[in-house]
Nucleic acid binder design. Structure first.
Length: 216
DNA sequence: CACCAGGCAAGTA
DNA sequence: TACTTGCATGGT
């Protein structure tokens, strides 16, 4: 079995059992980008609270966040954890948006995927997963998002080593899959949904996992 | 009580 | 280059 067919079978098994995901949760490209920073090593429920705080104050726009003092931003996103650090990272991102595209996140999509990715990676606080999440889900650029669940699920199926690097794992998918925003979006969403329920560090029962025995 | 959650950068040797 | 550590809230 080729790697391409292996991955497509894996995708099919998850999609058949769980259905479409309608990811990423978020109304606008800007809100999706903020969510991508806020969810770094953090439960999504906590991110929801942080975003709700910003929404209640009608602050979910690039102009408002750009003008908002970092200390006040930190207080509002407190439920998301690492709140001082993340407030600083969001501010770095806002400075980038201001400089590169006049605070209009959609304009980043005018660059090629590769160029836009390289630009995002220069921002302090935006690493590969955050960059790929913004590119794929906010800007609809074809890049595969890798996260802890992706690595864990593939490792537990003995497809990759436990310590495989981000770029290598991303290429594991992108080298064989068709370049397709919908496929990449849905694939990653399904991986997270499966990971949360059936592939935690201390794993519950794997028997009901959609991927149980998908290799046969 | 311990452990975990959709990472990342800075520090150390 | 290759490890280690800080960051922090809220749920199980």
């Amino acid at each position: 079995m080729t790697r391409k067919n292996l991955l497509l079978n894996m995708y099919g098994a998850m999609h058949e059992r769980l259905g479409p995901s309608y990811w990423w949760p978020g109304e606008t490209p800007f809100e999706i980008a903020l969510g991508a920073i806020l969810t770094q090593n953090t439960n999504w429920e906590n991110v929801t609270r942080a975003l709700a705080n910003l929404r209640e104050e009608s602050l979910l726009s690039p102009e408002k966040i750009f003008a908002l003092p970092e200390e006040r931003l930190a207080a509002l996103i407190r439920p998301a954890g690492y709140f001082r650090l993340k407030a600083r990272r969001i501010k770095h991102f806002m400075t980038f948006l201001h400089r590169e595209c006049g605070l209009c996140p959609e304009k980043i999509a005018d660059f090629s995927t590769q160029t836009a990715r390289a630009r995002l990676l220069t921002v302090n606080g935006i690493g590969p997963e955050t960059a790929d999440s913004i590119l794929l889900y906010a800007l609809h650029k074809p890049t595969f998002v890798v996260d802890a669940y992706t690595r864990r699920i593939l490792n537990r199926h003995m497809l990759v080593p436990e310590d495989i690097g981000y770029e290598e794992l991303r290429e594991y998918f992108m080298d064989v899959l068709p370049v397709d925003v919908v496929l990449y979006s849905e694939f990653h969403a399904l991986i997270v949904r499966v990971g949360k329920k059936w592939c935690r560090k201390k794993q519950p029962d794997c028997s009901s996992c959609p991927l149980a025995g998908f290799l046969e």
